[in-house]
Simulated scan of single mutants.
Amino acid sequence: MFYRIQQFYYGLFPQITSKDLILIQAYLPERAISLFTAQLPADQRHCLDVAQDLLKINPASLSLSQKNQLIQAALLHDCGKTLYPLKLWQRVYVVLAAHLPQLIWDYLKSLSQIQSLSRPLELAKEHPKWGAELSAQAGLEEEVVQLIRFHHTPKSEVGNLLYLADNRH
């Protein structure tokens, strides 16, 4: 519970440091930096936290290329949210709803007549697909695109690392 309160605070007052900017420039090609900077500051901070988490665990089973792809995906995994940004209360609602049983989640999503309840859940579900499309348009490697596309439903060992780090932050 305390973690979620802390997360809410950092969502309200995200800080991006010069050290963070160095990390972004070290891992993202020039054409992808604009995808990162287009994100809301809270999403930028979240993506940086996920990337830094992955850099700390530094899985030995991954090649250097896979590690670079993983960090790129971590920095951009939520870039699809830029197409339809949610208000703060909607973001809180999505986080809370994610902890509900699937049956209730599906019911809330089906309430199309109450857009304020259904739309944020629909957008949250679709952002990985949109992020993959944006990253492909930016010319990122197919492996990075797929990590972004499946960061909620991982299809590989590398994808699972991203999924776990995302859920820790």
Rank of each mutant, 00 (worst) to 15 (best):
L76E: 02
Q137C: 09
I16K: 01
S112N: 14
L103E: 12
L134T: 00
Q66Y: 00
A26M: 11
R45T: 04
I16H: 03
Q52D: 07
S34D: 13
L28R: 02
Q15N: 15
S135E: 03
E122Y: 13
K67C: 01
Q146G: 04
D53F: 10
Q39K: 08
Q25I: 13
G80I: 09
S135M: 05
A60L: 14
L117Y: 04
A124D: 15
I57C: 09
A38I: 04
L100G: 00
K81I: 15
L121H: 05
G131A: 07
G139Y: 06
L117A: 02
L86W: 00
P101F: 00
S34P: 05
I104V: 10
D53R: 14
L76A: 05
P101M: 02
S18Q: 15
G139D: 03
S34C: 11
W130Y: 14
F36K: 00
N58H: 11
H77N: 07
V95K: 15
S65N: 13
L108E: 01
F150V: 08
L75A: 05
E30S: 12
S63P: 07
L23S: 01
I114S: 11
R45V: 00
L111Y: 03
Y10P: 01
D78N: 10
E133Q: 14
E122W: 09
S65E: 15
A97Q: 05
P59T: 07
G139A: 02
L48F: 04
P14G: 08
P101I: 03
L64W: 09
A136Y: 07
P85N: 08
V145G: 02
R119H: 09
E133Y: 09
G11F: 04
Q52K: 13
A132I: 00
Q102H: 10
F150M: 04
S135N: 05
Y84P: 06
L23F: 02
K81M: 12
L147N: 03
A38G: 12
A97W: 01
P120Q: 01
E133T: 10
Y93V: 06
L140H: 04
G131T: 05
K109E: 08
S18N: 14
R31K: 15
L21P: 10
S112R: 13
Q72Y: 00
K87T: 13
I148V: 08
W130I: 15
L35R: 04
D78G: 08
L83F: 11
K67Y: 11
D106A: 13
T37C: 02
Q25A: 10
Y27I: 01
S118Y: 00
K87F: 11
Q25T: 14
D53H: 14
K129E: 15
Q102F: 06
I22W: 15
L147W: 04
H127R: 09
P41Q: 11
S118N: 07
Q137S: 12
I33W: 06
Q146T: 05
L123N: 11
V144S: 02
A136D: 11
K19P: 01
L76R: 03
Y107L: 06
E143R: 09
P59S: 08
V92I: 14
I104K: 07
